[in-house]
Design a protein around this nucleic acid. Sequence first.
DNA 1: TGGCACATAGGAATTATTCTTATGAAACCG
DNA 2: CGGTTTCATAAGAATAATTCCTATGTGCCA
Lengths: 151, 151
Amino acid sequence: MKPGRDTIEQRMRTFNAACARLGIKITHQRMEIFRAVISTEEHPDAETIHRWVKKRIPTISLDTVYRNLRLLAETDLIAIVGMSQENLRFDGNAHPHHHFVCVRCGMIRDFASNAPDSLQTPKTARVFGEPLSVHLEVKGICTGCRGDVRR
Amino acid sequence: MKPGRDTIEQRMRTFNAACARLGIKITHQRMEIFRAVISTEEHPDAETIHRWVKKRIPTISLDTVYRNLRLLAETDLIAIVGMSQENLRFDGNAHPHHHFVCVRCGMIRDFASNAPDSLQTPKTARVFGEPLSVHLEVKGICTGCRGDVRR
DNA sequence: TGGCACATAGGAATTATTCTTATGAAACCG
DNA sequence: CGGTTTCATAAGAATAATTCCTATGTGCCA
């Protein structure tokens, strides 16, 4: 486990402040779950976090881990990697392309980049390995959903 | 349903050729599943594709749809949207960042873009709606897996 | 056209995630 | 301080997407 740009303790203080502001109780379980997520670069899954936290709270249930991860993600204290996790979805577009994803209705549409050069792999990514492809995901509100809101 | 840059019939011919080359049998079910995926912009899930194909082959099983979608994705005749669909994974990095994903071992690492301007939302994406965030996903082989291969 | 490897259908199994319900603890209020 | 309300948790049951199993069917090469 290794800290990011902020120290763990700094982020725990931010966490406490955010919970107070949002009216979320600061339980021992919740704190340890948050600490586990921010203390690693590994982007762990719920099962893995559960295993880690059990070392400190042996009786914690998997459901509590799931419940709190979801809560933390909803309040943007942590993030969920990748798509907003619906089912598998398939794409028959044979050409290289990117995706616009509506965060409200889940609509996905393809678009081509109009600046292909800008999609050279950033040098900062190359330290991790040999890149094969680069894909852009734009999240937003689609025109349909935006129209709904106006009404 | 609306064709992409190539016509449906062109792509069906490519499909037949690819199957022959790969030693995959061209069954009625397989063809209809492929046709369904390439005939839409909607990035459907397996259940939806099953519903569509049932109109032409009423007895087709959901498992056959899954099996063939997976086969087609493995041979790059179609693609799966988003991450290579393991479990939910969580990310405690509070700063905006992008992801390097190893396609072999699933390792995910954060990196910052060294060209933030290049991540202005492409104009081609704006026609679909109001963008909120842009995220880059670089897929590749991580140094660890690359080392394994050399041995 | 016969045989054989590959495909399919249908239902059962698996697995990640969420729900239910009863219990427990924190905060609130007089 | 004691009562009450509200939110959180644990444990196991339920749900739902995906995959596996196995018997039967079908495309394709010789």
